[in-house]
Protein backbone atom coordinates (compact mmCIF):
# COMPACT_ATOMS: atom_id res chain seq x y z
CA UNK A 1 0.00 0.00 0.00
CA UNK A 2 1.51 3.26 -1.13
CA UNK A 3 0.13 5.44 1.65
CA UNK A 4 1.60 3.32 4.42
CA UNK A 5 5.10 3.34 2.96
CA UNK A 6 5.46 7.01 3.82
CA UNK A 7 5.86 5.83 7.41
CA UNK A 8 9.36 4.74 6.47
CA UNK A 9 10.44 8.25 7.39
CA UNK A 10 9.24 7.73 10.96
CA UNK A 11 11.29 4.56 11.44
CA UNK A 12 14.30 5.03 13.71
CA UNK A 13 16.11 8.26 13.00
CA UNK A 14 15.57 8.15 9.25
CA UNK A 15 14.46 11.78 8.96
CA UNK A 16 17.47 13.12 10.82
CA UNK A 17 19.77 10.90 8.77
CA UNK A 18 18.35 12.31 5.53
CA UNK A 19 18.84 15.84 6.85
CA UNK A 20 22.40 14.91 7.80
CA UNK A 21 23.03 13.62 4.28
CA UNK A 22 21.57 16.79 2.83
CA UNK A 23 23.90 18.83 5.04
CA UNK A 24 26.90 16.95 3.60
CA UNK A 25 25.74 17.82 0.08
CA UNK A 26 25.09 21.44 1.01
CA UNK A 27 28.42 22.14 2.71
CA UNK A 28 30.39 20.55 -0.09
CA UNK A 29 28.49 22.69 -2.61
CA UNK A 30 28.92 25.83 -0.50
CA UNK A 31 32.66 25.43 0.16
CA UNK A 32 33.34 24.55 -3.49
CA UNK A 33 31.35 27.56 -4.65
CA UNK A 34 33.14 30.02 -2.35
CA UNK A 35 36.60 28.70 -3.28
CA UNK A 36 35.71 28.27 -6.94
CA UNK A 37 34.29 31.77 -7.33
CA UNK A 38 37.39 33.29 -5.70
CA UNK A 39 39.77 31.32 -7.91
CA UNK A 40 37.56 31.87 -10.96
CA UNK A 41 37.64 35.66 -10.44
CA UNK A 42 41.44 35.65 -10.44
CA UNK A 43 41.58 33.43 -13.53
CA UNK A 44 38.93 35.53 -15.28
CA UNK A 45 40.90 38.74 -14.66
CA UNK A 46 44.07 37.05 -15.91
CA UNK A 47 42.25 36.04 -19.08
CA UNK A 48 41.52 39.69 -19.93
CA UNK A 49 45.21 40.60 -19.77
CA UNK A 50 47.12 40.84 -23.04
CA UNK A 51 49.68 38.11 -22.15
CA UNK A 52 49.16 35.42 -24.79
CA UNK A 53 50.80 32.54 -22.88
CA UNK A 54 48.63 33.02 -19.79
CA UNK A 55 45.53 33.29 -21.94
CA UNK A 56 46.37 30.15 -23.86
CA UNK A 57 47.06 28.09 -20.73
CA UNK A 58 43.88 29.28 -19.04
CA UNK A 59 41.90 28.60 -22.19
CA UNK A 60 43.19 25.00 -22.18
CA UNK A 61 42.22 24.73 -18.53
CA UNK A 62 38.69 25.91 -19.31
CA UNK A 63 38.32 23.60 -22.32
CA UNK A 64 39.43 20.60 -20.27
CA UNK A 65 36.60 21.21 -17.84
CA UNK A 66 34.15 21.81 -20.68
CA UNK A 67 35.04 18.46 -22.22
CA UNK A 68 35.15 16.18 -19.19
CA UNK A 69 31.86 15.35 -17.43
CA UNK A 70 31.73 16.25 -13.74
CA UNK A 71 31.30 12.66 -12.65
CA UNK A 72 34.58 11.84 -14.40
CA UNK A 73 36.27 14.79 -12.63
CA UNK A 74 35.20 13.26 -9.33
CA UNK A 75 36.73 9.93 -10.29
CA UNK A 76 39.93 11.60 -11.47
CA UNK A 77 40.33 13.26 -8.07
CA UNK A 78 39.27 10.14 -6.21
CA UNK A 79 41.55 7.63 -7.97
CA UNK A 80 44.53 9.57 -9.22
CA UNK A 81 45.38 11.80 -6.25
CA UNK A 82 45.83 8.97 -3.71
CA UNK A 83 47.52 6.49 -6.04
CA UNK A 84 49.80 8.69 -8.08
CA UNK A 85 50.40 11.64 -5.76
CA UNK A 86 49.89 9.85 -2.43
CA UNK A 87 47.41 12.46 -1.23
CA UNK A 88 45.19 10.79 1.34
CA UNK A 89 42.33 13.16 1.97
CA UNK A 90 38.81 12.11 2.89
CA UNK A 91 36.60 11.68 -0.18
CA UNK A 92 34.61 14.82 0.65
CA UNK A 93 37.71 17.00 0.30
CA UNK A 94 38.54 15.32 -2.99
CA UNK A 95 35.04 16.29 -4.12
CA UNK A 96 35.57 19.87 -2.91
CA UNK A 97 38.80 20.00 -4.93
CA UNK A 98 37.21 18.65 -8.11
CA UNK A 99 34.17 20.93 -7.77
CA UNK A 100 36.31 23.98 -6.97
CA UNK A 101 38.47 23.56 -10.07
CA UNK A 102 35.35 23.00 -12.18
CA UNK A 103 33.55 26.06 -10.77
CA UNK A 104 36.69 28.16 -11.21
CA UNK A 105 36.94 27.15 -14.87
CA UNK A 106 33.31 27.98 -15.63
CA UNK A 107 33.33 31.16 -13.57
CA UNK A 108 36.54 32.42 -15.19
CA UNK A 109 34.68 32.45 -18.50
CA UNK A 110 31.73 34.30 -16.95
CA UNK A 111 34.07 36.90 -15.38
CA UNK A 112 36.03 37.38 -18.59
CA UNK A 113 32.84 37.90 -20.58
CA UNK A 114 31.48 40.35 -18.03
CA UNK A 115 34.69 42.40 -17.78
CA UNK A 116 34.88 42.62 -21.56
CA UNK A 117 31.33 43.89 -21.78
CA UNK A 118 31.84 46.74 -19.32
CA UNK A 119 31.71 49.83 -21.58
CA UNK A 120 35.12 50.96 -22.81
CA UNK A 121 34.45 54.50 -21.59
CA UNK A 122 34.48 53.19 -18.01
CA UNK A 123 37.98 51.78 -18.37
CA UNK A 124 39.18 54.96 -20.05
CA UNK A 125 37.61 57.21 -17.41
CA UNK A 126 39.32 55.16 -14.72
CA UNK A 127 42.69 55.46 -16.43
CA UNK A 128 42.10 59.20 -16.95
CA UNK A 129 41.57 59.54 -13.20
CA UNK A 130 45.05 58.12 -12.74
CA UNK A 131 44.01 54.69 -11.39
CA UNK A 132 46.63 52.00 -11.74
CA UNK A 133 45.78 48.53 -13.06
CA UNK A 134 44.92 47.08 -9.64
CA UNK A 135 42.71 50.04 -8.77
CA UNK A 136 41.05 49.91 -12.17
CA UNK A 137 39.97 46.31 -11.61
CA UNK A 138 39.17 46.80 -7.92
CA UNK A 139 37.05 49.96 -8.18
CA UNK A 140 35.78 50.14 -11.75
CA UNK A 141 35.71 46.88 -13.70
CA UNK A 142 35.00 44.15 -11.13
CA UNK A 143 32.08 45.88 -9.37
CA UNK A 144 30.36 46.54 -12.69
CA UNK A 145 31.19 43.08 -13.98
CA UNK A 146 29.76 41.54 -10.78
CA UNK A 147 26.35 42.96 -11.64
CA UNK A 148 26.49 41.56 -15.16
CA UNK A 149 27.66 38.14 -14.04
CA UNK A 150 25.12 37.61 -11.24
CA UNK A 151 22.45 35.66 -13.22
CA UNK A 152 25.02 33.30 -14.74
CA UNK A 153 26.65 32.84 -11.33
CA UNK A 154 23.36 31.87 -9.72
CA UNK A 155 22.78 29.37 -12.54
CA UNK A 156 26.22 27.92 -11.91
CA UNK A 157 25.33 27.58 -8.22
CA UNK A 158 22.15 25.66 -9.05
CA UNK A 159 24.19 23.33 -11.24
CA UNK A 160 26.74 22.75 -8.49
CA UNK A 161 23.93 21.90 -6.07
CA UNK A 162 22.39 19.46 -8.54
CA UNK A 163 25.78 17.91 -9.19
CA UNK A 164 26.20 17.09 -5.49
CA UNK A 165 23.84 14.19 -6.24
CA UNK A 166 26.87 12.48 -7.78
CA UNK A 167 28.85 12.52 -4.53
CA UNK A 168 27.65 9.07 -3.54
CA UNK A 169 29.55 7.72 -6.55
CA UNK A 170 32.81 8.31 -4.70
CA UNK A 171 31.34 6.81 -1.51
CA UNK A 172 30.43 10.03 0.27
CA UNK A 173 27.39 9.68 2.55
CA UNK A 174 25.36 12.38 0.83
CA UNK A 175 21.57 12.58 0.82
CA UNK A 176 21.27 10.07 -2.05
CA UNK A 177 23.51 7.51 -0.37
CA UNK A 178 21.55 7.84 2.89
CA UNK A 179 18.35 7.41 0.90
CA UNK A 180 19.67 4.20 -0.66
CA UNK A 181 20.58 2.80 2.75
CA UNK A 182 17.14 3.59 4.12
CA UNK A 183 15.51 1.90 1.13
CA UNK A 184 17.63 -1.22 1.53
CA UNK A 185 17.21 -1.44 5.28
CA UNK A 186 13.42 -1.13 5.11
CA UNK A 187 12.80 -3.12 1.95
CA UNK A 188 11.07 -5.99 3.78
CA UNK A 189 8.66 -3.85 5.72
CA UNK A 190 8.06 -1.10 3.17
CA UNK A 191 8.54 -2.35 -0.38
CA UNK A 192 7.25 1.00 -1.68
CA UNK A 193 9.78 3.00 0.33
CA UNK A 194 11.88 3.48 -2.81
CA UNK A 195 9.13 5.67 -4.23
CA UNK A 196 8.84 7.88 -1.16
CA UNK A 197 12.53 8.22 -0.40
CA UNK A 198 13.56 9.18 -3.94
CA UNK A 199 10.44 11.34 -4.13
CA UNK A 200 11.50 13.21 -1.00
CA UNK A 201 15.06 13.71 -2.28
CA UNK A 202 13.67 14.92 -5.61
CA UNK A 203 11.53 17.48 -3.77
CA UNK A 204 14.41 18.53 -1.50
CA UNK A 205 16.61 19.34 -4.49
CA UNK A 206 13.72 21.21 -6.10
CA UNK A 207 13.12 23.26 -2.94
CA UNK A 208 16.77 24.36 -2.89
CA UNK A 209 17.22 24.98 -6.60
CA UNK A 210 13.91 26.46 -7.70
CA UNK A 211 14.15 29.76 -5.77
CA UNK A 212 17.69 30.27 -7.05
CA UNK A 213 16.82 29.70 -10.69
CA UNK A 214 13.69 31.85 -10.36
CA UNK A 215 15.87 34.65 -8.95
CA UNK A 216 18.34 34.31 -11.81
CA UNK A 217 15.52 34.38 -14.34
CA UNK A 218 14.08 37.55 -12.82
CA UNK A 219 17.48 39.25 -12.98
CA UNK A 220 17.93 38.23 -16.61
CA UNK A 221 14.50 39.60 -17.51
CA UNK A 222 15.38 42.88 -15.78
CA UNK A 223 18.64 43.15 -17.73
CA UNK A 224 17.13 42.58 -21.13
CA UNK A 225 14.45 45.20 -20.63
Amino acid sequence: MAHSAINVFLEGNNISRIIGGLWTSVWIAAVSLVLGLALGTILGVLRTLPNKVIRFVLRLYLEFFRIVPTIVLLYLAYYILPRTFHVNWPASWMAVLAFTLWVAAEFSDIVRGAIESVPKSQRESGLALGLNKMQLFRYVLLPQAAKLELPATINLATRVIKTTSLLMMISIMDVVAVGQQIIEANNQQYPNAVFWVYGLIFILYFIIDYPLSAWSKRLTAKHSR
Binding site: S165, Y198, Y205
Partner: peptide, 22 residues
Amino acid sequence: ELARNTPLLIQLFFLYYAFPVL
Protein backbone atom coordinates in the same frame (compact mmCIF):
# COMPACT_ATOMS: atom_id res chain seq x y z
CA GLU B 1 10.78 24.06 -13.74
CA LEU B 2 10.58 20.58 -12.23
CA ALA B 3 13.00 19.04 -14.73
CA ARG B 4 15.51 21.89 -14.68
CA ASN B 5 15.75 22.14 -10.93
CA THR B 6 16.34 18.50 -10.05
CA PRO B 7 19.39 16.32 -10.74
CA LEU B 8 19.32 13.80 -13.59
CA LEU B 9 20.61 11.14 -11.20
CA ILE B 10 17.46 11.33 -9.06
CA GLN B 11 15.26 11.42 -12.15
CA LEU B 12 16.94 8.24 -13.38
CA PHE B 13 16.67 6.54 -9.98
CA PHE B 14 13.01 7.38 -9.97
CA LEU B 15 12.45 5.93 -13.43
CA TYR B 16 14.60 2.86 -12.87
CA TYR B 17 13.93 1.94 -9.25
CA ALA B 18 10.68 3.63 -8.17
CA PHE B 19 8.52 3.15 -11.28
CA PRO B 20 8.71 -0.67 -11.18
CA VAL B 21 7.09 -0.50 -7.71
CA LEU B 22 4.16 1.21 -9.42
